[in-house]
Amino acid sequence: MSTQVTTGLHIRRSVQLTIDGQSVTVAEGETILSACRTMGTEIPTLCFGDTITPKNACRVCMVEVEGSRVLVPSCSRKVEPGMVVRTDTERTDHSRKLVLELLGSSVDLSLTKNVARWNSEYEAEPIRFGKPAAPTNDRDEATTGHHHVADGSSVVNVLQPVKIDNELYVRDYSKCIMCYQCVDACGEQWQNTFAIGVAGRGFDIRISTEFNVDLTDSACVYCGNCIQVCPTGALMFTSEYNMREAGTWKEEEQTQTDTICPYCGVGCSLTLHVQDNEIVKVTSPSDHSVTHGNLCIKGRFGFQHVQNRAE
């Protein structure tokens, strides 16, 4: 979908650079990642989302840029004229492999798209760091700047109980890779509610309400814009969570249909995910000028009235 050009002409200069030996010309302001995608070169990304300013926190998209001492995050680095980029060197591959292993050894990536494929492509074996430690339930009480010194007998991770404190969505931070997207979507970049923030430091870093209060005691307005951007399934509609628990979630059988929200007059685009004639989840197209992937509680969760059919 292209966006409507409304006023004036935005003339962007083009930039020529070299990627993997191939010369490529893209518009000024594009990132290395988008240039690579233009060329059809796949670069793995985990924390990157198309509605949020890249945080480049995961570091799986690193590429080599000539003249740079360290690798460069392709998702956020803007192209420059004459830039020489390599996406498939020993260094980049090593870096991706290790990042996949580090995340894989500390986070449940079972619902993160493409990870299995990338693991095999980059020969990543998260298990080689050692036996995973048992889940804990005290990550929210960590003392900043202090930790129990590791004895090395098992490798620590973020596995913890699922947080279920409201009817609409669950938070399974065992799956959280700390991409920051939910915080940015809840905060300044979109919703500006700031119900969740990043708390703690280092490995104890976590997504949290103030003092880890339940969502129902927080500022949360249940817009679900955090769920929309979550790349790992850490944030999930209760409907999806329950169906997955019951083994009835069949993504391959679902249809996705774009329509418009039935509530107020803003006219937000909805994507209805339907399984067996039931709406099971609602998202919004990220490239639409009205919503940019965002909805409010009514648009995101207010669909039940068309399927409260049982009498």
């Binding site: 249809t255 249909t257 774009d258 329509t259 418009i260 929200c261 039935p262 007059g265 803003v266 006219g267 685009s269 909805l270 209805l272 339907v274 004639n277 039931e278 709406i279 009205v290 669909f303 009235h305 068309v306 399927q307």
Partner: peptide, 24 residues
């Protein structure tokens, strides 16, 4: 339900005419 059980259009507050589609 016009927004999810039928095909058509609606107009929003910025005069944008948009498609509603049948999903169920």
């Amino acid at each position: 339900a016009s927004w999810c059980e039928a095909e058509g259009t609606v107009t929003n507050s910025e005069r944008r005419v948009q498609r509603v589609r049948k999903a169920i």
